[in-house]
């Protein structure tokens, strides 16, 4: 049964995914593009809020070494079952918005997404700043940098690899959790999974899974590319191994002329 049943399902899924009718929205149904936009929208809002909160907090805690308990508390939040928190908040909040907008679902979803995204960004930012070698920090102060300069010009650039990895793991969790947000009747790519399940329309359900996986992979790739350009090669360890000394001198001369 295994192979025989599998092939048709893969083809049926491909068929569902490649049907142009499924991509466009109709007055009755939101298409793939619409749900993709909604999914990206929830995720971006949550990540921006989480960054605005967690990045400065992580930098401050790492730089001063004070209030490290905040990091522990944030990490303890990871033990919370996300789906449970989501359902609880929806049940608490949505009645207050009943019948008017989808804010009753949007607000609890965003709260859960932000709460999820904060711990990895916060703890990685903190760890990144903490990991800067004491000699480097000592030299920075010793040369007459102010606290702000040490943080911005030395600690932050050196913490970037860890900050990026924290942000990437936050982003993946947000995209994954935005998917299960569809369970509480909100849009997003998870809609196809839950609708497909409810209607026993398995090609749609599996197609939704493909779309979510693709979104996660593409988003991660994009951030990885940004990271490559933002993080100094001296920190990431990617050096031009094959450039000859001469071409390097030439480049330098050019820059100085």
């Amino acid at each position: 049964m295994a192979a025989g049943g599998a092939q048709p399902m893969i083809f049926k899924t491909l068929g569902w995914l490649t049907d142009p009718g499924h991509w466009r929205s109709t007055p009755f149904d939101t298409g793939i593009l619409g749900q993709l936009g909604a999914h990206v929208g929830f995720s971006v809002i949550a990540l921006v809020i989480a960054l605005v909160i967690a990045l400065p907090a992580g930098l401050a805690i790492g730089h001063t070494g004070r209030a490290t308990w905040v990091v522990s508390v944030a990490n303890a939040v990871r033990a919370l079952p996300t789906i449970g928190a989501l359902v609880l908040l929806v049940v608490i909040i949505s009645p207050h918005f009943y019948g008017r907008t989808n804010a009753g679902f949007l607000i609890p979803t965003e709260i859960v997404l932000v709460v999820l995204a904060i711990p990895p960004i916060l703890s990685n930012t903190y760890a990144g700043v903490q990991n800067v070698s004491p000699a480097v920090r000592d030299a920075a102060f010793g040369m007459g940098m102010t606290d702000r300069q040490v943080l911005g010009r030395v600690e932050l650039p050196n913490a970037l690899p860890l900050i990026f990895s924290g942000f990437r793991s936050a982003m993946l969790q947000v995209i994954a959790t935005a998917t299960i947000a569809s369970y509480v009747t909100l849009g997003g790519l998870g809609r196809f999974i839950y609708d497909g399940l409810a209607q026993k329309d398995y090609p749609q359900m599996i197609g939704g899974g493909v779309l979510v996986a693709a979104l996660a992979l593409v988003a991660d790739l994009l951030v990885a590319v940004v990271q490559r350009y933002v993080v100094s090669r001296g920190v990431s360890g990617r050096f031009h191994r094959n450039t000859s000394v001469d071409s390097r001198v030439a480049a330098l001369v050019e820059e100085n002329v």
Partner: peptide
């Protein structure tokens, strides 16, 4: 990187 819910629904068709 693949979200859990997506992996749940992708496993059965991939493994038949």
């Amino acid at each position: 990187t693949i979200p859990s819910i997506a992996l749940f629904v992708l496993i059965p068709p991939l493994l038949g």
